[in-house]
Design a protein around this nucleic acid. Structure first.
Length: 887
RNA sequence: GGGCGGGUAGCUCAGCUGGAAGAGCGCCACGCUUACACCGUGGAUGUCACAGGUUCGAGCCCUGUCCCGCCUACCA
């Protein structure tokens, strides 16, 4: 039945390409808009168009593909929705860099031409990552690929903006926001990264206007004093109680500002008085609103002091700091400087120090949305896995502040708001208006700003399915079944999808969220370009093959744990692929004369019963693990079964049958079983190692249906008929006997090629029968010349003794090895058992234990004690005997 | 300042609702037995961070301490 032989080793590179093309050609990744099969859907965390595949992506998408393939094989109508994110700031930066090389800025080009350039860039270089995902084996429904700037998705953005606006959930206003002086845009609170900075605390004196002394304030940002509009103290502070309401002179500016009282001030910090700069500090801004203080912005968007900064106008902010400090000192206002460590906010994208600035921005009123998003998790409509993240989610949602959604960029969804030059009317619409609905004027200007990239991402679970159109896909796949993403974007993305999904769709965006950890290097450090410890996933794929790489990622994904990636580990699993390949070669060779059509009614013999029972266990374990996203447990179960049960034991024990030494009937039974078990094994492994499993599935003609591909075959289920505890125990008893002989061989340094004559003593006739039935297995695997079994055999002279339960294994040593080494071996064994025995008996001598422990625990302990006692006695007898001889 | 996670074999980690510890890699010894040396067989290794407590019994539960990560926060 088989035509071609397998190559010496699996060649990943060629096979991967061929098989992936084959899958795509056969449309296996495609999900049906409507189907009788249960729907299962995942939307991909859309990578940035500018992105290249890194370890985080590799992990994230491997896990998704594992689940997707698993569910697809389980018969679900499975959708993995792929796509990309336009990544406003990142992409705009890339193209601006490109322009810079040509010596021009985006302003030289103008908005329209610049955007044309970005699109051009996107078509040409964007989406490299999509092809990289294909190399990872991702079975996304590529026909449905979406981009956040697509027509449809842009429509969804407008639709949601208008709805939020009309319902009073979006507002515009002058507020203090996080401003990046390099990107020239506002960013949200989340996009600010705080970094420890060793700086100074400058203490400055502000004299009272009436000449009656002074007040000292401390600041980490002396240059902002140019915009101070008050000094604040705590209302209860006895030092300042009578100063409240007085005026002080603002140094350098020669301006009078009031002393106000606010309990925001901490009395025991510094002098207990704080300068208030509403234009440059969020807290001061809040205070200014409470006290109706003047709000002065002393800087422009580039971080340069403007006309409100007096003589410092035109100076860059840090230059201004130096000059302000120098002048304060010169004029005697500087009281002192002390070293001070504090946090400085930086732009997450370009690491420039953030400048809090007052500007007109659009905001989403977030509290009502957050409340619903929390409810959904409380009521388990969405389950967060691992559950430890729930606390973080709730905490963030509880303390959330309004979301600044406007960005002063060009690349992105332009805010659908127009202003009428004629009457000043504000028009908010999903379709570009031609004329003002109020005055009919045609001179309309659209808002210059675009929306935060995360605004469109937050709609991803339904916008990709066609919303606002009521598509079949939307009906079938929303809410999606599962989201798999890194915990680092829990707030950025997951939380916002929750809010928007519930707000727009009236239902949660996904039932389960699985949050995985970060991939670090082998020393546990975060990978970064600057550290130079980046491991390129594509390089790993080239080197070890996709299957080994994916298996490694899954194997090291324990819940809530970081993944420490190291090439050595991947290599280890490459060896596993090789092992499977070679097992297939043996299987394939052995099946050469197997006729699957010819009926073989012969019953399974012991090894067949055993391997099927063990396979059942593997199936059960893998399914249970995957159902709970315990990826490492699933890989461990498969690895152990394939290597240590199927290869190490079943194949070894079956070799005589395969080589025709046992008879044609047993050969057929073995062939039948090998084929079945090997096929199921491949199916279990397929979600993790899609390529090698497909290759072997086809090479071995394991499919039974018209569908040739393993990826659309039915995922295995445990079969009750295969559970056979008696067979497992009997087989494992034989295995222990074999191991026992091998142990003696190894410990005594008996050459593997030295055939042994072994005697076995059993407790009863039943035991005798069992061993006799397994005699051939023992002879073969322990490499014996002969094996004799009898009930209660007297211990012979000059033997090494092994103990397995009630069974004694005697290996005659005459002429093979000296007695002393057996004595040493027995003593070692004995010491081990003695320790166990001691513990067990002490436990059973304890009255409290006997009274209070569960009966089954006591029974188990009694069983243990008995077997320890037996073993001890047997070893002791053997030792006495052998000692007697040596004397 | 709050919160979360972690400290288990040389390394990387498993260990579910408590019944005296496991895997992979590495290490040591032996071995080219017709799938595989990307292999086989055997072996060694742990006061489960520390100190108390609960319990008949704790790696697992409670309290405290010490380290290590991460997230979060307006003490100028």
């Amino acid at each position: 039945m088989l035509t071609k032989e397998l190559e010496k080793a699996f060649e990943p590179a060629a096979a991967e390409k061929r098989l992936y093309d084959y899958w795509v050609k056969n449309n296996y990744f495609h999900a049906q808009d409507k189907s009788d099969a249960p729907a299962f859907s995942i939307v991909i965390p859309p990578p940035n168009v500018t992105g290249m595949l890194h370890m985080g992506h590799a992990l994230n998408n491997t896990l998704q593909d594992v689940i997707i393939r698993f569910k697809r094989m389980q018969g679900c109508n499975t959708l993995w929705m792929p796509g990309m994110d336009h990544a406003g700031i990142a992409t705009q930066n890339v193209v601006e860099q490109e322009l810079k090389k040509e010596g021009i800025s985006r302003h030289d080009l103008g908005r329209e031409k610049f955007l044309a350039r970005v699109w051009q860039w996107k078509e040409k270089y964007g989406g490299v990552i999509i092809n990289q995902l294909k190399r990872l084996g991702c079975s996304c429904d590529w026909e449905r690929e979406r981009f956040t700037m697509d027509e449809g998705l842009s429509q969804a953005v407008r639709e949601v903006f208008v709805r939020l606006y009309n319902e009073g959930m979006i507002y515009q206003g002058d507020y203090i926001v996080n401003w990046c002086p390099r990107c020239h845009t506002a960013i949200s609170d989340l996009e600010v990264e705080f970094k420890q900075d060793q700086s100074f605390l400058w203490n400055i004196r502000y004299p009272y206007a009436d000449g009656d002394g002074e007040i000292v304030v401390a600041t980490t940002r002396p240059e902002t004093m140019l915009g101070d509009t008050a000094v604040a103290v705590h209302p209860e502070d006895p030092r300042y109680k009578d100063k409240i309401g007085k005026m002080v002179i603002l140094p350098l500016m020669n301006k009078k500002i009031p002393v106000i009282a606010d309990d925001y001030v901490t009395m025991d910090f510094g002098s207990g008085a704080v300068k208030i700069t509403p234009g440059s500090d969020p807290n001061d801004f809040a205070m200014a609103r409470r006290h109706n203080l003047e709000i002065i912005s002393i800087m422009d968007g580039h971080g340069i002091i403007n006309e409100h900064g007096g003589s410092y106008k035109g100076q860059e902010r840090y230059e201004a700091r130096r000059n302000v400090v120098a002048d304060l000192e010169k004029e005697g206002y500087l009281v002192g400087i002390e070293p001070y460590g504090h946090n400085v906010g930086q732009c997450y994208r370009c690491k420039t120090d953030i400048e809090p600035m007052v500007s007109k921005q659009w905001f989403v009123k977030i509290k009502p949305l957050a409340k619903q998003a929390m409810n959904a998790v409380t009521k388990k409509k969405t389950r967060i896995v691992p559950a430890t993240w729930e606390a973080t989610y709730f905490d963030w949602m509880t303390n959330i502040r309004d979301w600044c959604i406007s960005r002063q960029l060009w690349w992105g969804h332009r805010i659908p708001v127009w202003y009428c030059d004629g009457c000043g009317k504000v028009i908010v619409a999903t379709i570009d208006p031609d004329v003002c609905p109020d005055c009919g004027g045609a001179s309309l200007r659209q808002d210059e700003d675009v929306l935060d990239t995360w605004f469109s991402s937050s709609l991803w679970p339904f916008s990709t399915l066609g919303w606002p159109k009521r598509t079949k896909a939307l009906k079938t796949f929303y809410p999606t079944s599962l989201l798999i993403t890194g915990f680092d974007i829990l707030f950025f993305w997951v939380a916002r999808m929750m809010m928007m999904g519930i707000y727009v769709m009236k239902d949660v965006p996904f039932h389960d969220v699985y949050l995985h950890a970060l991939v670090r290097d082998e020393k546990g450090e975060k990978m970064s370009k600057s550290k130079g410890n980046i491991i390129d996933p594509i390089l790993m794929i080239d080197q070890y093959g996709t299957d080994a790489f994916r298996f490694t990622l899954a194997a090291y994904t324990a819940q809530g744990r970081d993944v420490r990636m190291s090439p050595e580990r991947i290599e280890g699993y490459k060896f596993f692929v090789n092992k499977i390949w070679n097992a297939a070669k043996l299987t394939l060779g052995s099946l050469a004369d197997f006729d699957p059509e010819a009926p073989c009614d012969a019953p399974d013999s012991l090894p067949e019963k055993w391997i099927k029972a063990r396979l059942n266990k593997a199936i059960t374990d893998v399914i249970a693990a995957l159902d709970e996203y315990r990826f490492n447990d699933a890989t461990a179960a498969i690895y152990h079964f394939i290597w240590h049960e199927y290869c190490d034991w079943y194949l070894e024990v079956s070799k005589p049958a395969l080589y025709g030494k046992v008879g044609p009937e047993q050969k057929s039974v073995t062939q039948r079983t090998m084929k079945e078990v090997f096929g199921i094994m491949l199916q279990l492994l397929h979600p993790f190692m899609p390529f090698v499993t497909e290759e072997l599935w086809q090479a071995l003609h394991l499919h039974n249906s018209d569908e040739n591909s393993i990826m659309v075959s039915a995922f295995p289920t445990a079969q009750a008929a295969w559970d056979d505890q008696a067979a497992v125990e009997e087989m494992e008893m034989l295995m222990e006997i074999i191991t026992s002989v091998r142990n003696i061989r190894g410990e005594m340094r008996i050459s593997p090629s030295q055939k042994l004559k072994v005697l076995i003593s059993v407790a009863d006739e039943q035991g005798k029968k069992a061993i006799e039935a397994g005699c051939d297995y023992i002879v073969n695997l322990a490499n014996l010349e002969s094996l004799a079994v009898d009930v209660n055999l007297a211990e012979p002279e000059g033997v090494a003794t092994g103990v397995v339960g009630p069974t004694r294994i005697y290996v005659p040593l005459a002429g093979i090895v000296d007695i002393a080494s057996e004595k040493a071996r027995l003593e070692k064994e004995l010491a081990k058992v003695d320790k166990d025995l001691e513990h067990s008996s002490r436990k059973l001598a304890n009255h409290d234990f006997l009274e209070k422990a569960a009966p089954e625990v006591i029974a188990k302990e009694e069983g243990k004690l008995k077997s320890f006692q037996e073993k001890f006695a047997a070893l002791e007898t053997a030792l006495k005997k052998i000692s007697g001889i040596s004397l």
